[in-house]
């Protein structure tokens, strides 16, 4: 019981409900899940896939999503809010997003801390931002505007990156922490992205994890990646989660109660059992850590 008290401080102050364990829902698995073949607690969906072609409508997938929503919590994950762009916020996109939010009622909405386009063009790439005071100011204003528009706390995700900028004035974790302190937004902590960026830029992933404001972390991502011949690690989401990422999960769980956790898999998608097994391994680590702490506390 002692352990629960130690970490309950985190839990009481955490800004999101803990939904348990989930995966990023892919169309390949929709029917199996609707038939009740999953033991997962919740699902994340890539929002744009359900918004459809502008002015036309949505795919049959939305109808299935609404059926799934009756039985499971759903969270929205976006890739096109373009929080970091110098272009004005895309109000048309936000309006469509709000319509879908009102229809599906997701537990929360997230997008990446990045920019995807400029001058009206969309690269569909999650491009990194320079870690400067100017960018913090720009992002804070936009996140606040998005939160006001949607009427709820918005969650930002740390991205993986392959470049860094000469203009940066601080570390990524200082940059993220400052934005959170100015907006009180949520953080979707992608542990694979922390690992990938740490490898690509030569910083210590554990330092990153130790410095971010865990109370605002509402969700954790784990995923697989690809190591290229030129030495870069690319966040491809097309492989099993690596041991190093699970080690980082273990590292965080030693200090904090973890929020909702899920795996992402976007390419070479495996069957549902293999996909879910990525999450069950993380659960084992977290539960094992809990058992270990209870054992120590009762001695």
């Amino acid at each position: 019981m002692e352990v629960v008290e130690t970490k309950s401080k985190d839990r009481e102050s955490m800004k999101y409900p803990n939904l348990g364990y989930g995966i990023g829902l892919r169309p390949e698995h929709f029917d199996e899940i609707l038939e009740g073949q999953s033991k997962l607690d919740w699902f994340e969906v890539l929002t744009e896939n359900y918004m459809g072609i502008t002015g036309s409508g949505q795919s049959p997938l939305l109808k299935k999503l609404l059926r799934l929503r009756k039985d499971y919590p759903i969270v929205f994950h976006c890739v096109s809010t373009d929080i970091g762009s110098s272009d004005p916020l895309d109000l048309k996109f936000l309006k469509q997003l709000k319509e879908l939010v009102d229809l599906v009622e997701p537990a929360w909405i997230s997008d990446h801390l990045c920019w995807t386009g400029i001058n009206g063009h969309n690269t569909h790439e999650l491009l990194p931002l320079p870690y400067t005071e100017e960018t913090i100011l720009h992002l804070s204003e936009r996140i606040n505007a998005i939160q006001d528009f949607l009427g709820q706390r918005f969650m930002i995700e740390n991205t993986s990156s392959y470049i860094s900028y000469k203009a940066s004035e601080m570390s990524e974790w200082e940059f993220i922490s400052e934005i959170i302190s100015r907006t009180d937004c949520g953080l979707l902590l992608d542990v694979n992205n922390v690992y990938v960026s740490a490898q690509n830029h030569g910083f210590d992933a554990k330092t990153f994890l130790n410095q971010i404001p865990m109370l605002n972390v509402g969700q954790i991502h784990i995923a697989g990646h690809d190591r290229r011949e030129n030495g870069l690690i690319v966040d491809t989401h097309d492989a099993p989660v690596c041991d190093e990422v699970y080690d980082l999960i273990s590292h965080i769980s030693q200090e904090h109660r973890l929020p909702a956790l899920m795996a992402e898999w976007d390419d070479n998608i495996p069957d549902l059992e293999v996909y879910e097994s990525q999450v069950w391994r993380a659960k084992e680590i977290i539960e094992g850590q809990k058992r270990h702490e209870i054992k120590i506390a009762t001695k």
Binding site: S56, G57, Q58, S59, L62, K63, L103
Partner: peptide
Amino acid sequence: ESFFNFYDFRK
């Protein structure tokens, strides 16, 4: 386009 037209919740 017809695939993405299938279910228009607005309509």
